[in-house]
Design a protein around this nucleic acid. Structure first.
Lengths: 206, 206
DNA sequence: GTCTATATACAGATAGAC
DNA sequence: GTCTATCTGTATATAGAC
């Protein structure tokens, strides 16, 4: 793998993430990706073979930040701290990786027809890990007994909505784009819903 | 407007809602809509003129159920009852009108490039009405003081996710499709988050 | 008013020069 | 290894028969 190749592949992936996120897979023209990447169109086919291959490469590349969100669950044993940090991290990912979030959202909304099996497996495993942790806390009396997966769905949806449905959010808030204050307010509301709503208590209360 | 015309237009709209929801605007072929509607393809162009016109007609037709969700806010003065009913209604809409929800979600995710101005206006007005009502309850001390629009975003996201990201939900729950029990559990979790999380109190507590 | 057969345009992909 | 010029399939849209 040459220097120039690595550099061009990265430029293409970056440009493709954005165009796929903004227009969706089918509406995306490889010519637009090439233009944004400032490379001739055939380069894309030379490096990736086909539009679909490139799209799969994009899906792989955007998976990391999304999976990394669960770190707070591994780092903190205390449910109040872990859940608070998790919500904040999920919101920061929506802010910093909006293309990753949208490409995934679009893919999943249409039934994940092009999502590689290994990514599905990793997402499933993460879901299991997270819901097991929640069940454990519930069993210890550190939070109310609820179906943990529905709680996860609520957290995922209400944090990712700031990336996926950014248009609606900015419109409703009457802004061009969101600033740090908006994300702080979002974190405050969602954290309150989860912590107070599930009566989550710190480890020290045991 | 002839009988046969009205009937065919409705068949086309219904088929189009489904195909647009499942594949997105760009990936949808008018031939697939025609096949599902059991009509010849040129009929679509005869009745609607273009794929884009048909899509706009679909957007108009799916707007009603989505706007109707706010009825509980008008019917019930009590915040506990109104919010509980609102969450339930939103979930039932996700269950009963999944195509409407997905077509809208896809449109908004890509920046609403084809959403008619009048629909935007009606959605904006509803947002204002709902957040005003929440502010009023907060002012009366019937619930915690929070940015009401962020609370709305959380409710919208966590209820619509059951339609928009149905694939992920069913996969996480290990099911082919959701049943009434799943929606009951979802309602229980989301209602608890909102009512307990915002410390919403009934009118009678005043 | 309705539908079969066809034109047209666009975008994914590649052959071949450099 | 890289890119210009071109091919080709596919899907929107319509002309014209019934």
């Amino acid at each position: 793998m040459s220097r120039i190749r690595a550099r061009n592949e990265e430029k293409i992936i970056r440009a493709a993430s954005r165009v796929f996120a903004e227009h969706g897979y089918a509406a995306t023209k490889t010519a637009d990706i090439a233009e944004l990447a400032q490379l001739p169109k055939p380069n894309i086919y030379y490096y990736f073979g086909s539009k679909e291959n490139l799209y799969r490469a994009v899906l792989e590349s955007v998976t990391e930040p999304l999976l990394a969100a669960s770190e707070p669950f591994e780092q903190h044993a205390d449910p109040v701290i872990a859940l608070t940090a998790y919500i904040r991290t999920k919101l920061m990912i929506s802010r910093d990786y909006p293309y990753a979030s949208k490409v995934f959202a679009s893919e999943i909304m249409h039934g994940a027809p092009r999502l590689p099996e290994d990514i599905i497996a990793r997402l499933s495993e993460q879901t299991r890990t997270l819901s097991d942790k929640l069940s454990q806390w519930m069993g210890q009396g550190l939070m109310e007994q609820l179906e943990p997966r529905h709680l996860l769905f609520a957290i995922w949806a209400s944090t990712q909505t700031y990336a996926d449905f950014n248009w609606q959010i900015t419109m409703a808030l009457g802004k061009e784009e969101l600033d740090d204050t908006d994300y702080d307010q979002a974190a405050e509301v969602i954290t309150r819903l989860v912590i107070e709503g599930c009566r989550v208590r710190p480890l020290s209360s045991l």
